[in-house]
Amino acid sequence: MDQERRPQPPASLRAAVAALAECKLKSSSEGMDARKGMEPGDLDNLSEADKLRMVTMIDQLQVRDSLRMYNSLVEKCFGQCIDNFRRKTLDKQEESCVRVCAEKYLKHSMRVSLRFTELNQGSMTPD
């Protein structure tokens, strides 16, 4: 087994999580605003300490969610793209399949989260 590939997940994982958390942050803060609208002053009434706890909790959930989606993305695309085990390395076709699959899945989840946010805010899409 080549050892150089082994330590791979942690490093790129952190970055992946950071990237994901960042792009999620936007949608979740939008969601927060929406909720504030529904329950006026929901967050404002909290003490500083409680606010901090709240933010930490949300951060943790976001990291956990990012890791989960990373895992299920890998599972999904592996399931769809890899079907022969004559070799232990990915061939060109499999690689491009995985790449397209991952990008497509991400775009898909962006779109779903967009629509989901709209539904949560109660603003129906005009269609």
Binding site: L73, F78, I82, A102, E103
Partner: peptide, 18 residues
Amino acid sequence: RCVHKYWQVTAMIGQLLS
């Protein structure tokens, strides 16, 4: 081979995401 390939896919998508 499956495990090895799965690991490779994990690495690939990790890079892609980051």
